[in-house]
Design a protein around this nucleic acid. Structure first.
Lengths: 99, 99
DNA sequence: TTGACACTTCGATAGTTGTCAAAGTAAGAA
DNA sequence: TTCTTACTTTGACAACTATCGAAGTGTCAA
């Protein structure tokens, strides 16, 4: 088990703004099951009172931790949740009572 | 939803030694379903190359985040996982595809 | 009561992190 | 080409964190 990988994930989620950015991406992705829209960072950036450089930095941390995937589309940046990692995290934390 | 509560939890798990301490407590608790033993910090402290003050500090952070409960038994300290919080964390991170 | 043990508290310090302003890049519109 | 928009990179700095040694507290056994 790669402890470092998980500490990186938890570190990425341990900052208030970064966690909210991540949750916004999750939210947008949920909505997209109906609409088919993608999550443009541009659209959610306005919700925060931090500057563009800081948001860019946070996105990179989330991406580095493997929590999200990013993709450039013209001048916009699209983000997607990495659902596999989220499942791994849930498993790590839990007791395996059934075992 | 209380973002601060969750950032505190993630921060608690974002340090390598602290995550390992938490996982040791989980492990001990799993074993205890058979043996009925409790998790004495004293016993797991030897696994780490950090000093007692640092371990004490880490335990307090885990407890403060609500991830574990602690209890004094004589001169020993007993730790238990707060399973409720772990479930909440898993729910927070996940997409609700079924909705 | 003395000593050993299991922590805890305190104070210090090196290292890390979140944020910003300024400057940079790259795409698309005019 | 020039301008605007969207993001990135860089450099700096204040705030926070992990760790330690030293000293402190409380428990238990001899």
């Amino acid at each position: 088990m790669d402890i470092k990988k998980y500490t990186k994930i938890f570190k990425a989620l341990s900052n208030e703004n970064r966690l909210e950015i991540y949750l916004k991406i999750v939210e947008k992705q949920e909505a997209s099951f109906d609409t088919g829209d993608e999550c443009f960072i541009n659209e959610i950036a306005g919700c925060f009172k931090i500057g563009a450089p800081t948001i860019s930095h946070h996105i990179k941390e989330l991406s580095n931790a493997g929590l999200i995937f990013t993709e450039k589309k013209g001048k916009y940046l699209i983000c997607k949740v990495n659902e596999g990692v989220v499942d791994q995290v849930s498993k790590l934390l839990k007791l395996q009572k059934s075992k």
